[in-house]
Amino acid sequence: MTRNISRLLLKDIAASIGLAPEVADRVVFTGNDRLPSCFPVTQLAAATIGAACRAVADLLEADGLSLPVAVDHRLASLWFRFSIRPQGWTLPAAWDAIAGDYRARDGWIKLHTNAARHKRAALAVLGCSATREMVAEAVAGWTSDALEQEIVTAGGCAARLRGRAAWESHPQGRAVSREPLILCDMGSPRNHFYHKSLQIDV
């Protein structure tokens, strides 16, 4: 199942950037390991790596060198999850101490407080100190929609957590569903990625 989803995503990617549809049949996907997610994150990782490798292999084939392309789901997951290994120093925490999911009166909300200005905005709206306990207590007094709007209006970053059906009926969810997987602007004079004679804006 994991491999089938990766192949379907690769077909979408190929179609979006002008690669031949049979590209997906020229990439071998191996392994079934995947990152814990309700979305196909590992499969997307494998498909994008497969598309990039296949494009390079096609360029090499133009010079007479034929190379097979195989993508391991476990390795793709590792690259998407963590690819920096510090030498002689320690990575800072990935998340701010109060960033995360909190229960509001009517559901859950995610506060993104990694940026200092976002943290200040959230705390100003909540009117509390920067501890998880105080933030949780303050959030519990709000409805998730109202808190999301207030924090965003104050210059912060917050999002009510929605189930799939609620997201698909939300204006932003509907807008995203109409977007292609990859959007290529063929006429832009800005930076371009070239694949053979194809010019793709990135």
Rank of each mutant, 00 (worst) to 15 (best):
M1C: 13
S6G: 11
L8I: 08
L9W: 01
A15V: 11
S16F: 13
E22W: 10
V23A: 12
D25H: 07
D25V: 07
V27S: 03
V27Y: 05
T30R: 14
G31T: 09
G31D: 05
C38N: 13
Q43E: 15
L44I: 00
A45S: 10
A46N: 14
A46T: 14
A51C: 14
A51L: 07
R54L: 13
A55R: 09
D58T: 08
L59D: 14
E61Q: 15
G64N: 09
L67F: 10
V69D: 09
H73A: 02
S77I: 05
W79G: 08
R81M: 13
R81V: 12
S83G: 08
R85D: 02
Q87A: 06
G88L: 06
P92G: 11
A97P: 05
Y102A: 01
A104T: 02
R105A: 09
W108R: 02
K110A: 06
K110W: 01
L111M: 10
A115S: 04
A115N: 07
R120K: 15
V125F: 09
G127W: 05
C128G: 10
A130F: 03
A130C: 02
E133N: 14
E137D: 05
E137N: 02
W142E: 06
S144N: 01
L147Q: 03
Q149K: 10
E150A: 15
I151N: 08
V152Y: 01
G155Y: 12
R160W: 12
L161S: 08
L161H: 02
R162N: 07
R162A: 04
R162D: 01
A165L: 04
A166T: 12
A166F: 15
P171K: 11
Q172W: 00
Q172Y: 00
A175C: 06
V176T: 13
R178A: 14
E179F: 15
P180D: 07
L181S: 02
L183E: 15
C184N: 11
M186F: 15
M186Y: 14
G187W: 06
P189R: 06
R190M: 03
Y194S: 12
V202H: 04
V202S: 00
